[in-house]
Design a protein around this nucleic acid. Sequence first.
RNA 1: GCCCCCAUAGCUCAACGGAUAGAGUACUUGUCUUCGGAACAAGGGAUGUGGGUUCGAUUCCUGCUGGGGGCACCA
Length: 534
Amino acid sequence: MIKEEIRKVIENALKELGITETGFVVEHPADLKMGDYSTNVGIKTGKAREIYAHLAVSPPSGVERVELAGPGFINFYLSKEFFKKSLKKIIDEGENFGKSEYIKGTKIMVEHTDPNPFKEFHIGHLMPNVIGSTLARIFEWNGAEVKQVNYQGDVGLHVAKAVWAIREGKKDNAYALGHKAYEEDQRAKKEIEDINKEIYDKSDEEINKIYEEGKKKSLESFEVIYKRLGTKFDYYFFESETGEAGKKIVQENIGRVFEESDGAIVFKGEKFGPSLHTRVFINSQGLPTYEAKDLGNAKNKYDHYPYDLSVVVTSNEIKEYFRVMLTALSQIYPELAKKTKHLSHGILRLLTGKMSSRTGNVITAEALIEEVKGKVKGDEQVAIGAIKYMILRQAIGNDIVFDLEKSVSIEGDSGVYLQYAYARANSLLKKADSQGRTLLEVGQGSTLSRETHEVEKLLHRFPEIVERAAKEYAPNYITTYLTELSSSFNNFYANEQVLNDSSESAYRLAIVQAFSIVIKNGLTILGIPTPLSM
RNA sequence: GCCCCCAUAGCUCAACGGAUAGAGUACUUGUCUUCGGAACAAGGGAUGUGGGUUCGAUUCCUGCUGGGGGCACCA
């Protein structure tokens, strides 16, 4: 709240000068050299000099200095007192520093990961998992009540393919083998289609047994990886549970929303929007497709948890599918469709070679974790952090180009960098404690070096970063911020001796402590482990 | 063919319509009697292309080129 306070103080000071222009902003300039806050109001109104003259005489509270710069920007430099107070505030709030009430009381459901039983949990699943669970935490830090859910495709042709292969005695790579047979062998194709139906109506004892055992084994293996990744789901939904409801919803709306075409029940998207297309909701065999199941899923989710906002995290390739499905949903449950937000992420793209679960050429999440572990002295926490950082450092819609040779980065701009800075800070605090230094009082910082000052200039911004990440569904803002913060801390660390006899020592120690709080809170939001030493 | 997304340094990514477009990596060089060198500092190197809107465009609109994805019984 300290951030909005000071921003508002500046905005109010401007209003008191009789400014009626509304299109101006008070923001952090790109460079710390240009002040802590900056406004373009002078450019917008054409009265930069006048406004500056007034502010220079009586600067807003908390502001030490005002300057006129560039094409008419007015820059504000915060006072020493302000920073001292903000350090105190960070230390006092501790693990709660950064929490906001921006969306206090709203109920949010985040669906993510959605792996299919009978298929491998591969590196492609890491994207929605890491992004989805991080968004959930971002919402929580902004005051929302959040449930994470996992919607899993336990029925459908892909499952039938795997079950078929298992029945043929093939245990490894069942899905890929089943898919291959489906494509190349007419008889296999027919058998797989029969199995698909039998899975739905549970009419065959042998199929039931293979199916139940395979599903159980698959789900258990997913739990192992969730545990390593630190993911906890509140609800698990399955397509097998939503099929019936979805089919019913479609059938009740034939004529109004859906229509028959070539023996199937379809939704003609073109009639509802220019960039929408036709999709099959019930196939000619009478089975609900993914589309119908998703309608059932939307209803089912709301019945379990009456949300204000439902966020669904999936990859880009189903972006247009989702628009069509959501349009169909809006014709049936307009209030649910309105509350649904689809966030699509890019894919992990390999620099060399292709990955496909259909051909069996996949890199499992487990294999990747193990490989990264090998590069970081076998440290699981560091490996997990490095992988998560790679995913969270960029805007979520873009693909991640992944070089198998270079693997995950462990130096410079990386998860390791953040964890290392935290471990260093922690080591300092430990030593200070053993020397009997007090960690609660912020000392005098009368002659601060540039390096020291830069760290505190960034520290107080943390809460607004967390809020903006929620507003824009952008975890990468937090990642970028933490990296900049750690960089300034490492610079400070390399240039200043914290624990010595100087009069500045206590103030520097307060900065170290505030830094350790912010970096820890930030990493916690990102789901990156925070080992005390490494 | 129609629709959607993307294009920033050699490579991988940032930049809420603003100031000198930031990082990492790679390359070159420097920092170690000092709290953790998985670190710090210095150097060169970029907005695909043509228009438009704006006081101001990497950002908004538009033409082109290049790449990715989607478009009926898969999920």
